[in-house]
Design a protein around this nucleic acid. Structure first.
Length: 574
RNA sequence: GGGCCUGUAGCUCAGUGGAUAGAGCAUCUGCCUUCUAAGCAGAGGGCCGCAGGUUCGAGUCCUGCCAGGCCCGCCA
């Protein structure tokens, strides 16, 4: 299941054979061999790898854990394979010391696969749709949308790396009441511009952008608008404004590095009668009921807390009615899995959506909703206010322009999506190692710098078959090689848990390992890449090349750039 | 009142049921003639919210409390 390194696979096989041999020797009786889990002990004296298999077997076979461990351990040969030493410790753990150099073999695989290293077959090529952002085109994206947007984009990339065929979709709510409110808002501002006294309604959108659109509209289409009736004018304003805003949103997303494959317009569900057709289907199945003049979907039959209205007493369809038709449409398009990314404030909506999907005859197991928790912008150690009412909220655009695209993306991935995020604007802007984005990019730039220096000295990385990896005999080199080997595992973990932040943490940790390794060259010549015997220098360059590949691959998934050089700004002297 | 999320070092946070709970920041102590000191090494700092339970083993799983956030409309 989990992608594990070649070394671990072989150790696993040896353990399995030892257990089988114990069974055939008649000293152990078990129905079937449980999954053999290998873990990395935290403490170095416990070896490189450890398994709890003896503890697991002991609990089902009514034997003492240490006796079971003994039986297994004595049947595992060491010396001829990658195992240096087998030992038993604690309540019955079997610990393995791996031969120096075994982990270095991964370097050839990383190098050979290059950009593809880290990709796995976890998703088996299945079609997956990730729907995210889907903000109504009634105003600019705010910072909360930004978090969902970056999360959705990186999750999509992670799922692609994990072997899914991913479609990124944006659902545009361009039908219904909000669009009329938008149209009315713009129309009111337009009237103000033509010196008409208007009492701007408080349910209308308050942001300055409405006035900007009205001004633009007045200039371009003012004459046309004056001839319309109010109803016509509002409709016209609504369409004009929503197109305008949607284009701004698209541009905003593009500048944040996010491109959706498809935009699905709610309007289509109305025009091609998909909603009516879903309602007919549900009615035939007996899931609907007329009550108080409205049409209700009996979602409680599918585990929801209460029934939900599909058509209001005034005859208008609810957004939920459209959502049912929309999700049916998703599965009809052949997606095996559908993941919706919503703000945490929509949490109460999950049960009814699952009910809707199930009632339409689809398996809700193929459907996941990920709720993204709130973002608090922090500046100078204090929260920046984000009230929509007062229209002082921070937009995604403002934040991205302030801290840059790369920092903006990384900071949204610094926490698990189901925990609230304090976005530290000061830290995100800082060009210093406290800033994890800077630190990671600096690690990458440093590697590039070493390669530039090497080239100046006439040292160029030879074919990988000419590299003697066994010259990498420093403990840190083994550790780094081992860390590199786990990228595919990390990708699978992210994909399983739908938690791309694990990759962000992995990348930071790898960067730290490299920076530490690199810096030891200041004190200890064995750690320097250049100025070594040629063969040793080449081996070390090869290691660096591999680190560079893994950093680049990780950054690519995160959608963050990998600069080859960090330009230092001159510090002003005071 | 009900649902979802969160609670781990002074701060911000990691932590697939495993052994002695980790990192960064902050604090203190060291390290630049040599591949970028925009860096590194080291030290101190913990009833893992509280109380029970399951387990050979719980920060992790279950139950109940406590505290904070979000939600509970024929709004989206």
């Amino acid at each position: 299941m989990k992608g594990i390194s070649m070394v671990e696979k072989r150790v696993q096989k040896l353990i399995k054979e030892a257990i089988e041999s114990a069974v055939s020797d008649g000293v152990l009786e078990i129905a079937e061999i449980p999954e053999i889990e290998l873990s990395t002990p935290r403490i170095e004296t416990h070896g490189d790898l450890s398994t709890n298999i003896a503890l697991v077997i002991a609990s089902v076979s009514k034997k003492k854990p240490r006796d079971v461990a003994e039986m297994i351990a004595e049947r595992i040969s060491s010396g001829k394979n990658e195992i240096e030493k087998v030992s038993i410790a604690g309540p019955g753990f079997i610990n393995f010391n791996i031969k120096k150099g075994s982990y270095l073999e991964i370097l050839h695989e990383v190098y050979k696969r290059g950009e593809d290293f880290g990709k796995t077959n976890f998703g088996e090529g299945n079609k997956l749709q990730v729907e995210f952002v889907s903000a109504n085109p009634t105003g600019p994206l705010h910072i909360g949308h930004g978090r969902g947007a970056v999360y959705g984009d990186v999750l999509s990339s992670v799922m692609e790396a994990a072997g899914y065929d991913v479609t990124r979709e944006y659902y545009v709510n361009d039908a219904g009441g909000q669009m009329l409110t938008l149209g009315r808002s713009v129309y009111m501002r337009y009237l103000e511009l033509s010196n008409q006294k208007v009492d701007y309604p408080k349910e209308c959108y308050q942001g300055d952008y409405i006035m900007d659109i009205a001004r633009e509209l007045d200039k371009a289409e003012g004459k046309k608008l004056a001839a319309f009736s109010e109803t016509e004018a509002i409709k016209f304003c609504s369409e004009y404004a929503s197109n305008k805003i949607l284009n701004q949103i698209k541009q905003d997303l593009a500048e944040t590095g996010i491109i959706h494959d498809t935009y699905f317009h709610e309007m289509n569900l109305h025009t091609d009668a998909a909603i009516e057709s879903s309602i007919r289907f549900l009615k035939k199945k007996g899931h609907l009921e007329e009550r108080d003049g409205a049409l209700w979907f009996k979602s409680t039959e599918f585990g929801d807390d209460k029934d939900r209205v599909l058509r209001k007493a005034d005859g208008a369809l609810t957004y939920f009615a459209a959502d049912i038709a929309y999700h049916k449409n998703k599965f009809d398009r052949g997606f095996k899995r559908v993941i919706d990314i919503w703000g945490a404030d929509h949490g109460g909506y999950v049960a009814r959506m699952k009910a809707g999907i199930e009632s339409m005859g689809y398996d809700p197991k193929g459907f996941d909703v990920v709720l993204i928790q709130l973002v608090n912008l922090m500046s100078g150690g204090e929260a920046v206010s984000m009230s929509t009412r007062a229209a002082t909220y921070e937009t995604l655009e403002d934040v991205r322009k302030e801290v840059g695209k790369d920092a903006c993306r990384y900071f949204f991935l610094m926490r698990s999506h189901n925990a609230q995020l304090d976005f530290d604007l000061d830290l995100a802007k800082k060009e210093s190692p406290d800033n994890p984005v800077f630190y990671i990019q600096y690690a990458h730039a440093r590697i590039c710098s070493v390669f530039r220096k090497a080239e100046e000295q006439g040292l160029i990385l030879p074919e990988s078959s000419d590299i003697d990896i066994n010259l990498l005999n420093l403990p840190e080199e083994q550790k780094i090689a081992r860390m590199l080997s786990t990228l595919p595992e990390v990708v699978d973990e992210c994909a399983t848990a739908l938690e791309p932040h694990k990759l962000a943490f992995y990348l930071l940790e790898l960067s730290r390992m490299f920076q530490s390794y690199y810096s030891q060259g200041k004190r200890d010549d064995r750690y320097r890449v250049l100025g070594q015997e040629r063969k040793i220098a080449e081996a070390k360059l090869y290691l660096l090349k591999n680190i560079q590949i893994v950093i680049q691959n990780s950054l690519r998934i995160l959608g963050i750039s990998a600069p080859t050089k960090m330009e230092k700004e001159e510090e002003p002297n005071d």
